[in-house]
Computed example of a mutant assay.
Amino acid sequence: MNNPKIKKIKIDSQQYILIVLFDNGILKEIDFKEKLQNDFYSDLKNKMLFEQAQVDIGGYGVSWNEDIDISEYELWNIGKVISNESILF
């Protein structure tokens, strides 16, 4: 089964959280605080960089720059489903 692609994101740089709307209508919250302990993501502790997150073309992931990204597969698997009513895009 293919994972849903990313449609939109909302960034909460104060809490290091991404809210991700997938193309199947599911909204998930991804808390990046634990990921920031990993060397690969440690630069994202800079809130200005964290705020630069962009959905990749085709919804296949989220990228911050040429070096830091995360796939839709991983976001789907680590995200926590939240109510559509709690976040307005």
Score class of each variant (00 low, 15 high):
1 M>C: 08
3 N>F: 13
5 K>M: 11
8 K>V: 09
8 K>I: 08
9 I>S: 04
9 I>Q: 04
11 I>E: 01
12 D>E: 13
19 I>M: 09
19 I>E: 03
20 V>S: 01
20 V>K: 02
22 F>R: 06
22 F>Q: 07
22 F>W: 04
23 D>M: 09
23 D>A: 06
23 D>R: 08
25 G>F: 04
28 K>N: 04
28 K>A: 06
33 K>P: 00
34 E>N: 10
34 E>L: 10
35 K>M: 13
36 L>I: 09
36 L>C: 09
36 L>S: 07
37 Q>I: 08
37 Q>D: 13
39 D>Q: 15
39 D>H: 12
41 Y>K: 10
41 Y>H: 10
44 L>D: 04
45 K>V: 02
49 L>Q: 12
49 L>W: 10
51 E>K: 15
52 Q>R: 15
54 Q>A: 11
55 V>I: 14
55 V>E: 05
56 D>L: 12
58 G>M: 02
59 G>P: 08
59 G>R: 04
60 Y>I: 14
63 S>E: 06
63 S>F: 09
64 W>H: 11
65 N>R: 06
67 D>K: 14
67 D>V: 02
67 D>I: 00
71 S>R: 01
72 E>I: 00
75 L>A: 03
76 W>F: 14
77 N>W: 02
77 N>P: 01
78 I>C: 07
80 K>W: 05
80 K>S: 15
82 I>P: 03
82 I>N: 06
82 I>F: 06
83 S>E: 12
83 S>T: 08
83 S>H: 09
84 N>A: 13
85 E>M: 01
85 E>F: 05
86 S>A: 11
87 I>T: 12
88 L>H: 14
89 F>M: 09
